[in-house]
Design a protein around this nucleic acid. Sequence first.
RNA 1: GCCCUGGUAGCUCAGCUGGAUAGAGCAGAGGACUUCUAAGCCUAAGGUCGCUGGUUCGAAUCCAGCCCGGGGCACCA
Length: 574
Amino acid sequence: MKQQLEQAVRAAVRDVYAADSDVELTRPDEQFGDYATNVALQLAGRLSLPPRQIAEGLAGQMLEQLADVVQDITIAGPGFLNFRLHDAVLGQQLRQTVRPDGAASRRSVAAADRTDQNGVRPAKVLVDYSDPNPFKPLHAGHLYTTLVGDVLARLIERSGAEVVRLNYGGDVGLHVGRCMWAIVQYLGGEHPNKLHDIPEGDRPAWLGARYVEGTTAYEEDETAKQEIIVTNKRVYELHATNDHDSPFAQIYWTCRDWSYRYFDTFYEQLEVRPFDRYMPESEVTPLGLQTVREQLEKGVYEESEGAVVFKGEKYGLHTRVFINSAGLPTYEAKEVGLLLTKWRDYQFDRSIIITANEQDQYMQVALNSIEQFEPVAASRTEHITHGVVKLQGGVKMSSRRGNIVSALDIIQAARQAGQESGLNPSEQTILAAIKYALLKVRIGGDVVYDPKESIALEGNSGPYLQYAHARARSILAKAQTVGLHAETYEPGERSLARKLTEYDEVIDKAVAELMPHYICTYLYELAQSFNSFYEHNRVIGSEREQQRLTLVAAYADTLKDGLELLGIAAPDSM
RNA sequence: GCCCUGGUAGCUCAGCUGGAUAGAGCAGAGGACUUCUAAGCCUAAGGUCGCUGGUUCGAAUCCAGCCCGGGGCACCA
């Protein structure tokens, strides 16, 4: 519908004024119509004509041509053209938008997402997110980045692309050295059998405590620091020699496994989609190291003070170390290995990496260096960054100290707020509260998380929308049948119908820009629109029961589809 | 110092590829209701869109400079 009207406007502009224009229809305030365009205002300067006069010329041309679709075209304000659809057309549009049988069948957007470069097969899109490091605790930031990644992957899937969910994690590197050092200290030497004494449920917390000890020792104790550096090297060697047998290696593999199990449990608890592949650093590091050395000879990288660096200054960036003076790869070299491994294994059409924005500049340097020798893979890679999660009240929770807020603390805070509200929400509702609260704000900036507000049943919250959905289902459950559609609408019905037809446009925009908060905003507005309709219009027992039930059903299906796209469950009753 | 981010109502945020009176929620004020889940509905109040210039018929939106917050700037990730 939108495209059809846009074409009609473009054609009219061509026919009447012999001009080309980029026409983008918008959704105006309801009092004006169903669709609007400001094309007359844009043309006014070029044509040296008053905008309202241009609008009149266009309206006259289109009115006849669009008679089957549009009941009127009006001109308002400085020269906006407003279109109002026939009720029957709106009803037809609604049937195309909402398909109760298979919500997931809705198509979407951008050809670039839907197909590969030649437009033949579905595009293969890699989405790399969450990326927790084994041997380190999951903090609030991991919770956020996991939810963002999960929903972006869902959005891309909705566009028809084939999505591969990747989880990259640092199972080698200084943080592992720190933790391994503290583990060995704790065990009183390299005694892997002593690990069995630690109860299964305590293991994540136990590893977290060791990590904090190792970090503190590294910063405060010079002897420990030297030992940790040695430990770090031994971890790399263990991978290089494929050592699974030495006592040190046994400790490493056992604890690494604990970490991965802990991550899996976490993802299950969050009810996010499972990952298709874990790509631990140890797996990509050799290729990264080798590539950086090769490109060092070709002049992409340079030696400086014993290290191998990329000088980003000529590209407006800064210099970063890829291989340190001890010959060990830094995160940068690992990133090279990661990207090349992705490229080798998937030949992706698009690769998206989601991280916190503190990695923004570093990633630019890494990508810029890769562009010098693998330009296609680099150009198909996008880095999306988000901010930091803060608890209401301004508590920071990011550093690698021991005073961080863990991911589970966030869930616990929501649960507690739920209990204090006296409503004892289900786990499903607690998850809805957290997910919606974090996803409703635009990705990019920091997010302030307020447990009380998130779990609140009034206002723009996940539980509110779950309830709105359950309410609609309950009306439908009371009805015998649901009508087919309406040919005419009363004003209250029409408003809701119009709002419902915006759904596809909102999804398209959310997918195209990878901005899930558009969906949140829309769903909330939709619920408000429905509540207002419902307050003023009797459904069951009304003369227009069938027409209204159609709207209720379309509304419930739309809410459910939208919530599920956000990874939020929509139970039929609450 | 340089680079990246952000600065919209008391609080938390939408709006930012320029357009019709700058929108929500929370908090605070008022109201309706013998009815399908009131977790709702209706009404009013609340704004120098960080500041100053510029571009434009038109700027919260684009450009420049400045102020304030967060992050990053060589061997951590």
